[in-house]
Amino acid sequence: MTNIIVETKGLRKVFEGHPAVDGLDLSVEAGSIFGFLGRNGAGKTTTIRLLLGFLKAGGGEARLFGEAVSGPVGGADMRRRIGFVSESKHLYPYMTVRQIIRFTRPFFPGWRDDLERRYLEIFDLPPNRKISALSKGMRAGLMLLLAISHRAELLILDEPTEGLDPAITEILLRELVALPASEGTTIFFSAHQLAEVEQIADHVAIIHRGRTVVSGALDDLKVQYQRLRVVFPHGPPPVSWVEGAEHVRQEGRTVSIFASHNVEALVQQAGSLPGVSVEPYPVSLKEIFLEHVGSN
């Protein structure tokens, strides 16, 4: 049986009459790296705040480790199993790196000194420097250090690479991708950078206007979603394509079909038309994303 670490069913949150999360369904398996995608304002950060109990859900349910998230007074035991990196990467500006580590450590009995030393070195964090004097990249590294060193079973990262330079981003991604194997950590992260998600995630969900529009294993999605290029000898006749043709675009004699499923049937249908050549192409995560949420 699959161990589900994060689960939402019909999760809702409304701000001043506007639904920020509108019946969201998610399921994150243990040990996976789950990329949570969406445009600005799609509801990613609100979902994360709901999962962490910072917000009260307006409907539906959210469960972490099989237990219902109990709103703002959520249990300390559950939070002890979670590492969180906020989008803003704000920590206490008046503390030094050493002080914030010393401050955080007693909250987590399972604190790992070896991981603390490793991440201090990897992110080149000067222990005596004040947090207010750290770069955003260093703050992201420090937050990751604090989140990982307490042996979190689940890492919830809200735009962890936002504003970071490519070198730091690469280091951070490399460290993240190693965690499920080395520590058994489940990673749930929201992101804008689709290339980064494609680089490390094994599962993704794309949300739009607070709802899940695509969800699944990245490898399965790449098989499931394909683009067909159908070239007609003359102008294409009107065709009623079988189920699975999400978007159909015509350019001269060529028809481009974005298929969300049922690719074989579509190829068969196109191939049965006289004089037509059909070529299926794999699609990138970016194409899947743009086809679903790229326009209004």
Binding site: V73, A76, R79, F84, S86, S88
Partner: peptide, 17 residues
């Protein structure tokens, strides 16, 4: 401005409000 942002770090700690 913005100092309250670290509030999220505080309330994510395993300690009651």
């Amino acid at each position: 401005e913005g100092l309250a942002e670290s509030t999220q770090f505080t309330i994510a700690l395993p300690v009651s409000r």
